[in-house]
Write a protein that binds this DNA or RNA. Structure first.
Lengths: 347, 347
DNA sequence: TTGTAGGCGTTATCAA
DNA sequence: TTGATAACGCCTACAA
């Protein structure tokens, strides 16, 4: 018999050793461990005991290879792993992780926008059988040369963005509607001149939130001039800069808007600070409304009013959808979890 | 020949198919793809072309099984995946992920304190060959029945906590020294009565930071009564509550401390808010110093002075150490990356 | 330079 | 109820 290269070999015991220790065949060990019903109770106990004594853990790679699945889910995060005060991503992860872990899945983190050809890396993870499915928190499922995650036949769920038009079931929040509602609230309280502090141009959220505000403006018969929109000055990660830039713009405007609706709490908090530094009273002179529901906003003076996203629940829902897809069930193309307006003082 | 159960079988092509398409043997494909030097250039091109055309990606499970390693690193996070405003964990992850991804490693997230028997889960991941190493951000490496991660022969690196006494190389910051320095700074500016707003009792950080303050107090000949320490009221995740509780205590004290040093920015910001709400001037009546370096602290009025932890760099260092260990190199038991005092206004 | 063959640890089929 | 055995896809020692 040829002697193959001993591939590493830590002390990790394998089934054969357990089988020997228990005085049974390998196949019996396998059954005893994974299919306890189909094996004699006494044998089962003997095997379990041997496994315990040896500290046996089934080799995941071998199982994966044999079964064709890995019990691993990939989470695709947008951009750099720094997300300001909003905590949307960590909360979403908590939701996802909670449900998936409870179902025996491992979580593999992949994030986009890394230096190297990351999209390729992600596609590879999918194609290599490393993962059984993916949850995408970035705006588009990664793709290389027109070949995207879902083309690989991998179950994919999106959250935060609606990409159901690309055939990816999506968990989103009611951005349009809640932004409309918030605006209507402010209109009802007498505001007539609005500033929308926008995030990156053309991004999904921006389209919908802005549309929501416009709808409220239109519905109440206010002129188009009642709403100004800042120019996108960068990614959400640079929320503070967005807020500071918006402050400059607001301070220079005449007539001055009496209400600012922001794309994120980071932007809102930076704007808030700058306004207060300028001696402007919030909310009496300018009302400021954030978006996200960052807990830290409650510590500002005045406390930041904001739109709270149900990030954890969205995560849980996305995970649940993925589990259903893995089970071969049909899932709805779009799942909406409502955000809520959180009035804390600044608007 | 027996007909084995076709295990799933997506359309994922394997080496055999590539070999057929290229008109060579499987082993040649393997060589061409992983050891391009040892194969005829023309053959190599033909193989590469076939692989490209078929959209071939090597199966990770098979490779893992054969090679005995997975190119996957487990990151063990403490507690729930919600970390207040501090961003230490996300920043650390960014640092870790950056270096590891660049070296072709995948990142598996495991977090402690989940409902189920999570320690067992983590140990299993390690024992099952799923991961080649681990970076631990929690205070102790998970263990079950006295069997800990490192007993499994897995390279482990710790960060944030020094557990080098357990044989785990650790990347930490100079908590003791920087806290001492910050206190000395405040003493030099005339402060004589201090409050330390403590985190959870008995935790590593608390021991070292408190010791740092005490050293400064002692070195300058101040009496023990110059320093009061709040009782730990909960985990770091509940930073706001820690701060609020501390505020109550501070307001009730006589003589009132003129400087509060806090275990986290979350605690410091909550304390700050509460003091300002009470009409207390910061920093003139009470100086407030945070810990972590949360970016959002700069938006408060006054802006939060704090001790900035080099979280990203610590992450990078930890990853680097792990890579060295995987390469069989010796690594130092303790690596210290300095924090810096960030004076922004509140102290 | 290329092909043949064996085995990594597991599960599932089939026969006993 | 149990055991022998054939793959899963890959890598590598060895032969050609």
């Amino acid at each position: 018999m040829k002697k193959p290269t001993p591939p590493v070999s830590g002390a990790a015991p394998n089934m054969k050793q357990v089988a020997e220790a228990a005085g049974v065949a390998v196949s019996t060990v396998s059954r005893a461990l994974t299919n306890p019903g189909r094996v004699n109770e006494k044998t089962r106990t003997r095997v379990a005991e041997a496994a315990r004594k040896l500290g046996y853990t089934p080799n995941a790679a071998a199982r994966s290879l044999r079964m064709g699945k890995s019990k691993t889910i990939m989470i695709v995060l947008p951009g750099a792993l720094y997300y300001g005060a909003s905590q949307i991503i960590p909360l979403a992860l908590a939701g996802i992780d909670g449900l998936l872990a409870r179902n025996g899945f491992k979580i593999l983190i992949a994030n986009l926008d890394r230096e190297e050809a990351t999209e390729q890396h992600i596609i590879n993870l999918a194609g290599s059988g490393t993962v059984d499915g993916a949850i995408v928190l970035s705006s588009a499922p990664p793709s290389v040369g027109g070949r995207s995650l879902k083309d690989l036949g991998l179950p994919v769920v999106a959250m935060l963005h609606d990409i159901s038009d690309q055939g990816v079931p999506s968990v989103i929040t009611n951005e349009h509607q809640i932004m409309c509602a918030a605006t209507e609230l402010l209109i009802a309280e007498g505001h007539r001149q609005f500033l929308y502090v926008a995030g990156p141009d053309g991004v999904y959220h921006e389209v919908h939130r802005y549309a929501g505000i416009r709808e409220a403006i239109a519905r109440h018969g206010l002129p188009e001039s009642a709403l100004t929109r800042t120019e996108g000055v960068g990614a959400y990660q640079e929320g503070f800069n967005i807020g500071f830039a918006a402050a400059e713009q607001l301070l220079a405007m005449a007539p001055r808007p009496t209400a600012a609706l922001c794309c994120s709490d980071d932007a809102a908090l930076a704007l808030l600070k700058r306004l207060l530094d300028e001696g402007i009273e919030v909310p009496s002179e300018v009302a400021v409304m954030g978006f996200d529901g960052a807990a830290v906003g409650a510590l500002f003076r005045p406390a930041l009013s904001t739109i709270e996203q149900p990030a954890t629940e969205m995560g849980t829902r996305a995970a649940a959808l993925l589990l259903e897809m893995l089970a071969g069930e049909e899932v709805p193309p779009v799942t909406v979890v409502d955000s809520t307006i959180l009035r804390r003082g600044s608007a």
